[in-house]
């Protein structure tokens, strides 16, 4: 019994080490969105410069859609851009864009003109109104919205061919069935 007592500190250490091993390898930016299974927050964004139509929450009803938060200043958005173009080219699912925090109102349109525009509609969000309503913490973030206009999934970071094939495209197909 006495001997076992001496092992106690080692035991406590191992338990703590276990917690740290898990806790310290978690990504603190991976935050569960509280908006999952909730209706898209109401918003009505103006068009970006040179575009006729803006983008409002009403546009999202009736079909499965993606809402992608991007900005011309955002490097990871550049990384995922070819994949979004590919989704548009193959007509897999409509993507709606929120052009977030452009300092220069020309920057967003110029970025899209140069690289191609994968979006069905784009809203201008210079003051993070829609971004905060969506609980966005960084760009890019992509929300998966079902036919009823409910947010069903939040993808943080770029959409890549890999995560599209493994997770995101099956999810779109699943949402379509419902």
């Amino acid at each position: 019994m006495k001997r076992l007592m001496y092992l106690l500190p080692l035991g406590i250490f191992l338990v703590l080490a276990g917690y740290f091993a898990v806790g310290l390898t978690l990504n603190p930016r991976d935050m569960p969105s509280v908006l999952i299974d909730q209706e898209v927050p109401p918003f009505d964004l103006k068009p970006i410069r040179g575009y006729e139509k803006g983008f409002s929450s009403e546009d999202l009803k009736g079909q499965v859609t993606l809402v992608n938060v991007f900005g011309s200043w955002c490097i990871s958005c550049l990384a995922e851009h070819p994949m979004l173009m590919e989704i548009k080219r193959r007509e897999l699912v409509p993507i709606y864009g929120i052009d977030w925090r452009e300092r220069d109102p020309e920057a967003g349109p110029r970025w899209l003109a140069k690289r191609g525009d994968p979006y069905t509609l784009i809203g201008d969000d210079p003051e993070s109104k829609a971004a905060i309503a969506f609980g966005v913490t960084g760009a890019p973030e992509t929300f998966f919205v079902d036919k009823r206009g409910f947010i069903r999934y939040k993808h943080v970071g770029p959409v890549t061919p890999e995560n599209w094939e493994s997770t995101l495209w099956p999810l779109v197909q699943e949402l379509r069935k419902q």
Binding site: R101, E127, S128, K129, A131, I132, V136, T137
Partner: peptide, 10 residues
């Protein structure tokens, strides 16, 4: 941070 600024304004 810019987002913090926007949150303050909100």
């Amino acid at each position: 941070a810019e987002l913090a600024r926007d949150m303050r304004v909100l």
